[in-house]
Design a protein around this nucleic acid. Structure first.
Ligand SMILES: [Zn+2]
Ligand SMILES: [Zn+2]
Ligand SMILES: [Zn+2]
Ligand SMILES: [Zn+2]
Lengths: 170, 170
DNA sequence: GCCCTGCCTGTTACAGTGTAACGACCGACC
DNA sequence: GGTCGGTCGTTACACTGTAACAGGCAGGGC
């Protein structure tokens, strides 16, 4: 394990193709969003988003705090939680409930669309996908139960395609 | 709020129709299961199951520990965690990831079938339902992504039918 | 300029969640 | 009796998350 897991040679659309690639894109989206809604995209919020985006796996709030800290200038976890509140409220990052950790959003989906998270037990990567079909069956089931949904959590733990290929070949 | 929430006059199939009704059933299931697999359904495990089953809402491990404790004989949370490990591994209780809490299983479903949890923001009740349709769309999406699932978490937060009816009528 | 207000951040303190490690106990099996 | 595996009690600790209060900073009205 050299940096973030050992993913290297897979070709299926994967979560974070290792880092900064989508970071600028996400930051730009955040800036547009803040502009449009009259919100403040502060330095702490931007740096928190960058740290989450550049990591190839879900990060805990304390991990983020540590990465944001420099000798002589510690960032407290509570500040990170507040930044994360902002970022999750506006769909820039997602919380992975089963891991108590956070990942960058990969889709720019509206609040209505809910994501499905594929969490790999081997390499720890998280892939976010959207499926209209799942949405529909969920909606049908909920309507049938007379339940009015507000937020949905769908997290699948298992093994990603890349890790299946690497099974005994390592 | 008199005992466990204020649910009283609803008729849709609800999670725990207030307690001990299904408790005996669940315990019987656990005893059969332990018998068949040669496992130990100890007193602590049984009492933990009973406490979870008799509560009408998800319970945290520390809440369970408190309910199991009597003056002079404290049950430590770590013991409860171990009992809960046993119970969840064998499908007798489920963990609600978004609440860090536990509910009794209402369905006796096999390991393959995964449940959908409907969590009410108003009354805190949790309803467990099984939908073959959702399973199918999930399986299709996962297969398409080349992802091999091991466990699934589907938790919907919102408002249950009973609480919608009580909206402004209280 | 000056104050007031709202929002963000820093700091401290604390509650809640979960696990590792060790030792005692107990029943089963040889 | 002695060994072994599994359960439980106990302690200690790491991680997760929030409440409360104080300082800083920008914008708007005066
Ligand atoms: Zn997203
Ligand atoms: Zn993987
Ligand atoms: Zn169940
Ligand atoms: Zn309700």
């Amino acid at each position: 394990m050299d940096e973030h897991g050992t993913c290297g040679q897979h070709d299926h659309a994967h979560a974070h193709p290792h880092g900064p690639v989508r970071t600028a894109e996400l930051v730009a989206r955040a800036e547009r969003l803040a502009q449009d809604l009259g919100l403040q995209f502060t330095t702490l919020r931007r740096r928190t988003l960058e740290v989450v985006a550049e990591e190839g796996r879900p990060l805990g709030a304390y991990d983020i705090a540590e990465r944001l800290s420099v000798p002589g200038k510690r960032v407290a976890a509570v500040s990170v939680y507040r930044a994360l509140d902002f970022l999750t409220e506006h769909g820039l990052v997602h919380r992975i409930a089963s891991r108590n950790a956070f990942v960058p959003c990969e889709h720019g989906h509206g609040a209505g669309e809910s994501a499905v998270f594929l969490i790999c037990r081997s390499c720890g990567s998280v892939d976010e996908t959207i499926s209209a079909e799942i949405e529909r069956s969920l909606d049908r089931t909920l309507a049938q139960a007379g339940f009015k949904p507000a937020s949905r959590i769908v997290e699948i733990e298992g093994e990603c395609g890349a890790c299946q290929g690497r099974q005994g070949v390592e």
